[in-house]
Design a protein around this nucleic acid. Structure first.
Lengths: 160, 160
DNA sequence: GTGCGTGCAAAATCTTTGCATACGC
DNA sequence: GCGTATGCAAAGATTTTGCACGCAC
């Protein structure tokens, strides 16, 4: 059950990481830069890359900041921003999807998650990048990105 | 190449003094090996490791095979089997969680997913294993497992 | 002005849970 | 028999969608 409901994919190269002013992508293909979309982008930029928010989180933050926006719009916007490559969608172990800002400074970073307390650390690895590329090449897939999820137990939880 | 891994269940209804790991786990701590649980295990066993089923898939398959079992029980059973380590829970990109049989032959394998059609291929990589271990060691986490998800476009979809 | 985006509420998924009953041990 | 597991249905949690209106362009 694929669901594409109305979200038109941008032209080729759409999966590459975003490289310019954020507004650019949102003005292509008849898309509009609405206040709501701007606020969502602003939020992710303000908190920086490496922070993981759920749709609910984003909505809550914006409402707290007196921005009038519906949860439905958050979902629609997040999906759009992921397709445009501005955000990464994460599926770490527990409870629903999370989103983080794509970053040129920390491309292809990976996540260490403590299975007990949920503490999450990030790291980069040229090895992983290469391994993903090797695997894709071997069967003729065109690589987009790879993410390594490491399940582990953090020092705090180990002592309990 | 052998097709089945070490987690062998004797055929349903047979008496055997051999007790594989599956029975052992399901008999510990007052747990019971019910027909429903056995059927779920049998299913994963039959299709082999490397196949990814959703809870709904499992339910559907069993009902087709004339096994009377409720979806709620499937969810409860899958969660149990994951906790016992007999199944792995996957969170590939599209639509919900999937489960696969844990395998002694293919531990720590990884997934290449086509973002357009959902086709999924598996691979193994010593590099990835090592990278996960390095990262965990570096900040004092105790490694449990690492899984690399590679998002890519498969040859078929590339030509469309 | 055109038609994309939004809000709202309803609907669709997906998953969990309360409770009485069934049954493995 | 004891206590766990199940079925059923209802509740929860999360995400999508139909429709009329609003607003970016």
């Amino acid at each position: 059950m694929r669901r594409f409901n109305g979200l038109v994919l941008p032209p080729s190269g759409s999966f590459s990481r975003f490289q310019g002013p954020l507004e650019l992508g949102l003005h292509q293909g008849g898309r509009r830069l609405t206040p709501q979309r701007r606020k969502v982008l602003d939020l992710f930029q303000r908190i920086g890359s490496g922070r993981h928010l759920s749709a609910e989180d984003v909505h809550h933050q914006l409402v707290e900041a007196k921005t009038k926006v519906s949860l439905a719009t958050i979902y629609r916007t997040l999906r759009l921003l992921v397709q445009l490559g501005f955000l990464h969608e994460l599926e770490l172990s527990e409870g629903g999807h999370r989103f983080e800002l794509s970053s040129d400074e920390h491309p292809d970073h990976h996540h260490l998650v403590c299975v007990r307390c949920g503490r999450t650390e990030e790291f980069e690895s040229e090895q992983v990048l290469q391994a993903g590329k090797n695997a894709a090449d071997k069967i003729g897939f065109q690589l987009i990105e790879s993410t390594l999820n490491v399940r582990a137990i953090c020092p705090n939880c180990k002592t309990i």
